[in-house]
Amino acid sequence: MRKSAIFFAAAFLASPLGAKDSLGVFSQWGAFRDADVPRCYAISTAQPDRNGKASAGYVSVGNWPRQSIRGQIHFRLSQETPSKQVRVRIGRQTFSLEVSGRNAWAKDRKTDAAIIAALRSADTMSLGMRDKRGKRISDSYALEGAATAIDAATVACSRLK
């Protein structure tokens, strides 16, 4: 797992909703800035399951200007999986993610950039995995508003150091 991914998990999971400034809500996505850290991120929750039950999963694209981290993708899986990798499908493209517990990241910055590019041109995204009992589960996301939220977070952090 990348060193920046470990930093991201610690910083993000410690206070995922603790951002000081809302930059806006763009359909299914929100953008936030915390100048004290500093960090900025775009975030969206997974869609409810087939039974209408809300999901505990979310995806974020984060920026930490002091660490020179920009556009890092992070998934909080709705359930823990014993797998060390999951696949995310965005439109017609598929990417492998590294998994630790309920957290998943791209393996490197190049894959982060490819995933973000795919987010900009697709309508939906889904992660397929198996839970501890082997049951197949999926976290699905609507991508309307993703590009705007990602851009808002990127611009907001470009002024922070």
Rank of each mutant, 00 (worst) to 15 (best):
K20S: 13
A114M: 12
C157D: 04
I115C: 03
S44L: 02
W29C: 02
D36Y: 06
S60M: 12
S100E: 09
S68T: 12
S83T: 01
Y41R: 08
A11C: 08
V37H: 11
L23W: 09
G71E: 09
I43R: 12
R109F: 01
F8Y: 10
G128N: 09
S4A: 10
S44T: 15
G91F: 03
D36Q: 14
S68W: 07
A118C: 06
R50Y: 06
R102F: 03
A113M: 07
S121Y: 03
E80C: 01
A149T: 11
I90W: 02
R136M: 05
A147K: 14
V86L: 03
R133P: 00
Q93H: 07
F26L: 04
R120E: 14
K53T: 09
D123M: 04
D36R: 14
I90K: 04
S140Q: 09
A46K: 05
V61M: 02
A14N: 15
V86R: 04
S121H: 10
I6Y: 06
G91E: 07
A122I: 03
R92A: 11
A10D: 12
Q67M: 13
F7Q: 11
F75K: 04
Q67T: 02
A19F: 05
A106D: 06
L77E: 05
S126Q: 10
A152P: 03
V59T: 13
D112S: 08
R133H: 12
A153P: 04
D49T: 05
K20F: 05
A146Q: 07
R120L: 00
W105N: 13
T148E: 15
N63R: 03
K135W: 06
S126E: 11
R159G: 00
A146V: 09
K107Q: 13
V86N: 06
A117H: 09
Q85R: 14
P38Q: 10
L119A: 01
A104E: 04
R33Y: 01
Q93K: 15
Q72P: 00
S158W: 01
Q28R: 10
D108A: 03
S60F: 00
I73D: 02
T45N: 14
I6T: 11
G18A: 15
T111V: 15
F32I: 01
N63I: 01
A153G: 07
G145K: 06
R76T: 05
A10Y: 12
V86K: 06
T154C: 03
S27M: 08
T111I: 15
K107N: 10
Y58N: 11
V155T: 13
A46Y: 00
G91M: 04
F75L: 14
G24V: 13
K53C: 01
R120N: 15
D108M: 02
V37L: 12
Y58C: 03
G101Q: 10
L160S: 11
A11K: 13
R109W: 02
D112N: 15
A118Q: 07
G101A: 10
E144I: 01
A14W: 06
L77M: 08
S121C: 00
Q28N: 12
G52S: 10
M125H: 02
A142P: 01
D139T: 05
G62F: 04
S140F: 00
C157H: 05
A114V: 03
G24A: 10
W29F: 10
G128K: 05
K107G: 10
P16W: 12
S96K: 12
A5D: 14
S83P: 00
F26R: 07
